[in-house]
Design a protein around this nucleic acid. Structure first.
Lengths: 193, 193
DNA sequence: ACCTTTACCTAACGAACGTTAGTAAACAAT
DNA sequence: ATTGTTTACTAACGTTCGTTAGGTAAAGGT
């Protein structure tokens, strides 16, 4: 059982760390805070991890991978830019909804990464955004979308999507599908009749 | 000149603090870091402020006031919900563009406020959001807007707007007016032709 | 039965934290 | 000329930080 126990503790520590980094932020969460929450001494944490920053690093890059994975699967099935965009939006929201703590850390705490990884992280982010821009660009080229500023449009879309983790802590009972549907409609068809 | 010098230092400290809280976050900015940037000793800061948290507190509530002020001025001039919304969007973006450091702190660092002020801050935020919801609600009632989920629509709009501070550090030469115009169009008329 | 590994502990490291006390110099007001 | 205020300093306070060293007891494999 040694291995199984270890994996459980490992997972528990990472889960707890995600929740605490989300709630108080990376810089304001101490290893002693984390240890207390897990129920062991701070020094004992180091049997399961090599540094505080490693925790953050893992969270950020794990989420990045999930976003990439979900995007490429979602987009592959669709033909038109509009459908691709809707699918990408839905996939993005799904990843957030399935990883509320992790995605919050991903969006807010990546600034505390140190520079070889920080640069790699930024590059991944911009690649991901490029995927959205390619879809919108194609839509404009096809005369299916208006002649918008593509960068700004994608910025607007992703900014709205990236805030959706906030929706799940309110008392409103909105499902993932409702959120994705409403946001897609608003962004594609607008508020005006 | 004693008074003038004091005001200058006071202002300089607060300006520098805004910039540093924005760049590294409140928790990761130490009073010694701040003092070094200003060019004095950490202890000397306390001639110009009473605590680190006071700095954050001032920044957050000063920005809140600016958002409220700009909103009410902008909305007062307009009649239709669509025009009110466009004006509110423009005003909101203007406040951000005129206070890039302060607004970033306002959006990201308010979690570090302590509880009497934290609660007050949250209430102010939700009042501000209600202003937007009232406009959209009116638009729906007037059959000028689609029958959207009002809370979700405003959430989407404000999430997009609140991220715009990010646009000014990119190399793109987008003016405030372009940003406000493009975002308003996208949110009101949508991406699809 | 012995040896290794795992998972925790206590103790401690040097560094950094926010903040206070006490003081000296510069300047303004009387 | 004197007094009081402002702005800075050095020194230090008690606390907390991330992390390491070294030890112990139990479990697992051979």
């Amino acid at each position: 059982m040694a291995t199984a126990t270890k994996i459980d503790r490992r997972t528990e520590i990472r889960q707890t760390a995600r929740k605490m980094f989300k709630e108080r932020g990376y810089a304001a969460t101490s290893m002693r805070d984390l240890a207390r929450e897990v129920g062991i001494e701070a020094a004992s944490l180091y049997n399961h991890l090599s540094s505080k920053e490693e925790l953050l690093h893992e969270m950020c890059f794990d989420m990045a991978e999930q976003f990439f994975q979900a995007f490429s699967v979602a987009v592959a099935d669709e033909k038109s830019p509009a459908k691709k965009l809707r699918a990408a939006i839905k996939a993005h929201i799904h990843v957030i909804a399935s990883n509320l703590d992790g995605s919050t850390v991903f969006f807010h705490e990546w600034i505390f990464l140190q520079d070889p990884e920080l640069a790699r992280f930024k590059k991944l982010r911009s690649q991901y955004e490029q995927g959205f821009r390619d879809i919108v660009q194609k839509g404009v080229a096809d005369k299916d979308f208006k002649e918008v500023n593509v960068k700004l449009a994608v910025f607007t879309i992703l900014s709205a999507l990236n805030a959706t983790y906030d929706l799940y802590k309110s008392s409103e009972k909105l499902s993932e599908e409702e959120i994705a549907e409403s946001m897609s409609n608003l962004l594609l068809k607008g508020l005006k009749k």
